[in-house]
Amino acid sequence: MRHLLDTESLSRDHAIAILDTAQEMSAVGEREVKKLPALRGRTVVNLFFEDSTRTRISFEAAAKRLSADVINFSAKGSSVSKGESLKDTAQTLEAMSADAVVIRHWASGAPARLANSGWIDAAVINAGDGTHAHPTQALLDAFTMRAHWAGLAGTPSVGGDLAGMRVIIAGDVLHSRVARSNVWLLRTLGARVTLVAPPTLLPVGVEHWPCEVSYDLDAALEKGVDAVMMLRVQAERMNASFFPSTREYARRWGFDDARLARLDALALKDTIVMHPGPMNRGLEISSAAADSPRSTVLDQVRNGVSVRMAALYLLLSGDLKSTPAPAPSAALPLVKDLP
């Protein structure tokens, strides 16, 4: 693993290695000296073409806990907003000896392009690209689920997966890099995923994904669920005819008080409620649900630092770096022979 670009190509072994390493990293946050010297002298660049204070500070905390030097680069107000290309920006950063580039970009595929174009040698970590992928978010979600799942089974988290866990991911799947990354990672880890969304917010082609799809949140909950992950509804979707009104959306697809109570009625006492944040309280999730003991929202934030420490550590040291990621083959032609 040379880069962390998506979860579709992440093997089960690598995924579990990241989660296990994150487990050990999580202990560091509880110590008096919250720092490890592992990446001393290494430089990590946070290259953010899209605002995301939460993700950036999580990566920054992770890199700093590993003693790396951190350079934050925000595209806003920089030469990028004056038309500098991704290539030139990246090469400028590499000239400053970046060992890893953590990139957040509005364009799907920008991290992969950066990693595979030959522009730079640094390890690339995708911190969210367009509507494509957000692998560290999916890993921290899986980490949170695994801790819960292992706790229920009374088994250690380390080495474990999510076999048999039932997960609902509900909301704007069409525009969600979080959903895309979770679907593949949770599949790899053995969970059973059901996507719940209005038909307008599911991508054409979702039928090929390794998950179930439903338009009915209540029916999906009835079938039994161990984790419910609510996705954020972006403001710009609200007036684009994806659904008639926020009120109707909240009623049909929001995790409201009634559905929170429904979990109790269904005797699903151990089901957790997740949200990648930031939340639209009262839209996709009610305050009561967000603040209930079932909510793992803050655990997810905490685990984000551990998972990102693990990713940085594994990519910047040793042999995972030497095995090239299975880059998408550009072998031609890809047309199958005529029948």
Partner: peptide
């Protein structure tokens, strides 16, 4: 593991529990 002086030159080691 995280305190080793050869992290950059050796195969990656998964850290163990302290």
């Amino acid at each position: 593991t995280m305190f080793r002086d050869d992290l950059a030159h050796q195969p990656t080691r998964a850290p163990q529990r302290t």
